[in-house]
């Protein structure tokens, strides 16, 4: 069974009596350890898809299974618990809490997981070491560069050791070079065996992943065969052209 299973998922919004199908009958499997990008222009429904995949939202129709949990039936508190334990989020605007320093920001998910103080500090330090920010523990987010802030956000996403990392336009607010550093970090996470899902509108960024899921008008327009890409994952991630050729 795949880590994430979507079956006939629709998300319908009602805006002033008009029905908007942000997602229209989407079925999708994402296996454990995959490095996937979800790509599409703005308004295509990719954000909605990410919200549903990330348990931030529930579908109007269809079923979502995450690591064996029926998401569409879960209560808000259960969803929060799933997000806390199984998912790490990285956002375009970093979304760090401005009043907390770097370590406290990274500790935040563990507070809600009920981890004890000393263990929290230890795990946060480990996660920050991993993103090479072990020397900026007491800084406020506003005292860090964009790339550093995003690395803090990644540390925060990793700290509860989740199975899935969601990144929503993680390089959108960064310059090209810093963006590459961040993408390299995701690639490393993927190589370490985590499931990484990258949401972007930029095909160049999507090109780093072996598998791409393209969304148009709420439907999956095209996808790269996971098994094909998986055969040559390292090569594919190294040369974007190969991934395209593999399609």
């Amino acid at each position: 069974m795949a880590l994430l299973e979507l079956r006939n998922v629709s998300k319908i919004y009602h805006l002033g009596g008009e029905e908007i199908r942000a997602l229209d009958d989407v079925s999708l499997d994402i296996g454990a350890g995959e490095f996937v990008s979800i790509i599409g222009p703005s308004g295509s429904g990719k954000s909605t898809l990410m919200h549903i995949l990330g348990c931030l939202d529930t579908p109007s129709h269809g079923t979502v299974t995450l690591d064996g949990i029926q998401v569409e039936k879960a209560s808000a508190s259960e969803l929060a618990r799933v997000r806390n334990r199984k998912i790490g989020f990285v956002f375009q605007f970093f979304n760090l809490l401005p009043k907390l320093n770097v370590v406290q920001n990274v500790e935040l998910p563990m507070i809600y997981a009920g981890v004890s103080g000393s263990q929290r500090r230890e795990q946060a330090l480990q996660a920050l070491e991993m993103v090479e920010l072990g020397n900026r523990l007491k800084n406020r987010p506003s005292q860090l560069s964009g790339g550093q802030q995003q690395r803090v956000a990644i540390a925060r996403a990793l700290v509860n050791n989740p199975r899935i990392i969601f990144a929503d336009e993680p390089t959108g607010n960064l310059d090209t070079h810093t963006g590459e550093v961040i993408l390299a970090l995701f690639r490393r996470l993927s190589q370490e065996g985590r499931t990484v899902i990258l949401v972007t509108h930029n095909p160049e960024i999507a090109a780093v992943t072996p598998r791409r899921i393209e969304i148009r008008n709420g439907r999956i327009a095209e996808k790269v065969d996971a098994r094909l890409a998986g055969l040559d994952r390292l090569a594919a991630s190294a040369t974007p052209a190969a991934a395209v050729a593999g399609a």
């Binding site: 808000a76 508190s77 997000r83 806390n84 989020f89 979304n95 809490l97 935040l108």
Partner: peptide, 16 residues
């Protein structure tokens, strides 16, 4: 609102 959203995204429940 945004901060609260962040807390919820990383796993804060309503009761939290």
């Amino acid at each position: 609102v945004r901060e609260i959203g962040i807390c919820k995204a990383v796993g804060a429940t309503g009761p939290n």
